[in-house]
Amino acid sequence: MKIATEAVQVGVEWDTRTGAMTVPIYQTATFRHPGLGQSTGFDYSRSGNPTRQTLENGIARLDGGCRGFAYSSGMAAITSLLFLFKSGDHLIVTEDLYGGTCRLFDRIFNQYNLSFTYVDTTDNDAVQAAITPATKAVFVETLTNPLLKFADLPALSTICRQHNLLLIADNTFLTPYLQRSLDLGADITIYSATKYLAGHNDTVAGLVVVKDPALAEQVYFHQNGAGAVLGPQDAWLVIRGMKTLGVRLDRQQENALRIARWLASHQRVTKVYYPGLENHPDHELMQRDAKGFGAMIAFEVDEHSLVEQLLLKTKLISFAESLGGVETLMTFPEVQTHADIPPELRARLGINNVLLRLSVGIEDGDDLIEDLTQAFEPEP
């Protein structure tokens, strides 16, 4: 069955008694026991809730994993996964990753003696060279945020197997609709479900999918123990959003390719990062390992003063953080989403004062290009 169909069907099978097409919102903290030493399978909503379980089972099916887990945010999901490691452990991490993840690693978990080395995870030799006796995992974003690099997961998986490392893939930008990271060798997939999976900028959530049952038991232990679980209302919103994942991403990708080509031809744009363009260095690899190129674009303009003009002059396109919703959003990574990355690293990566990030929505593509056109026009 195709991923788009699987997504539509999430939760449909739940209520066999009434035949309800939508899973109910089980807004309850606790569950009554049928007898001493007996359970319905649900006892306390931190440990398990039927609405959340429906979402967790659904994302596991979409991603081809043995078990899924839902958290109160994407950052809560990453935090919970870091409990798999102990003091002294070392992780290799994508260098151009979301600034909030960098903050979590360097300013929170560093104080517990976890160490992180940032490398270009599209460079397999660089990953290999960064491995030490203390290395326990490779954490990769694919696509990366905001520069849209695409790692070779099968090659990274081979390296990880040789050194007995976990391969953890943040697949937020592509979702299972465009890439199933577990099929390509990852052990764990992470999603900020706030983004494309929920898809409507109306809820915050994180999801994790695990391939191996024994590892999944460890992840569940930490999810239940730490308790940063997703509430039933938000779980229901993510389920509802996932049902339209396929049609939304199809439209968003179509718009993104048109806009990327338009930007590439604009005289005030000096560089466009979009893997759907044939000149993108990872274009061919994505054709091999993914079913599309996503709907995120980064681009550089020819002078800093144009950044504020574009952010404030667009009318349909909102100046806002986050991404993946039906509305098109634009942000300035250097001072917003990636402000927590050290300035010297930002400069080396190219996250500079002329770089903008565009999350393309489902509006009419002509209207979006018209909005950008008028925003680029000089002020009278």
Rank of each mutant, 00 (worst) to 15 (best):
N171Q: 07
S181F: 00
T142K: 13
N145Q: 12
A151Y: 00
L147H: 08
S181K: 03
L148V: 12
T158Y: 01
L156Y: 01
K149D: 15
Q162T: 12
A155L: 04
A193N: 04
S157R: 00
A186W: 00
T194I: 07
D183P: 09
F150D: 08
K136P: 10
T158R: 07
T189M: 11
R161A: 11
S192G: 14
L178Q: 15
D152C: 05
L148T: 04
A137H: 05
V138G: 09
K136C: 02
L178M: 10
Y191G: 12
A186D: 08
V140S: 08
D183E: 15
Q162K: 07
L153M: 04
A155K: 02
A137N: 03
G185S: 05
V140C: 14
V140I: 13
T175Y: 02
A151H: 03
A137M: 10
A151M: 02
P146I: 08
D152F: 02
N164E: 12
V140W: 01
R180W: 07
P154H: 06
C160I: 00
T189C: 14
P146E: 06
T194Y: 09
Q179P: 13
A155D: 08
P176T: 06
L153K: 01
P154Y: 03
H163N: 12
K136S: 09
P154F: 01
A155M: 01
A193I: 01
S157C: 04
T175C: 13
L156D: 06
L165R: 01
K149C: 12
Q179M: 15
T172W: 04
Y177N: 15
F150G: 15
G185C: 08
F139P: 14
P176N: 06
L153W: 03
D187C: 03
K149L: 11
A137D: 13
T194L: 09
G185I: 03
I188S: 12
S181W: 02
L167P: 10
A137C: 13
I168V: 15
P146W: 00
F173C: 14
F150W: 11
I188C: 12
T142E: 12
V138K: 06
D152S: 07
L143Q: 12
A186M: 07
L178A: 07
K136F: 03
H163K: 09
I190D: 10
A155G: 00
F173A: 15
I188H: 02
P146K: 01
L143V: 13
I159R: 00
Y191R: 03
L178T: 13
L184R: 00
L148A: 08
T189R: 00
L167M: 06
E141Q: 15
T144H: 11
F173P: 10
I159P: 02
R161S: 10
L148E: 11
N145G: 04
S192N: 15
I188K: 04
K136Q: 14
L174V: 05
L165Y: 00
T189Q: 09
F139W: 11
K136D: 09
L147Y: 11
D183Q: 13
V140H: 04
L156F: 02
I168K: 03
L156G: 07
D183L: 04
I159A: 08
S192R: 03
S192F: 08
R180A: 07
L143Y: 12
S181C: 09
F139Y: 14
Y191M: 10
A186K: 03
A137R: 02
L156A: 03
E141W: 04
A151T: 03
T142D: 14
N145C: 13
L166W: 10
F173R: 12
L178R: 07
L167A: 02
K149Y: 10
D183I: 05
H163M: 00
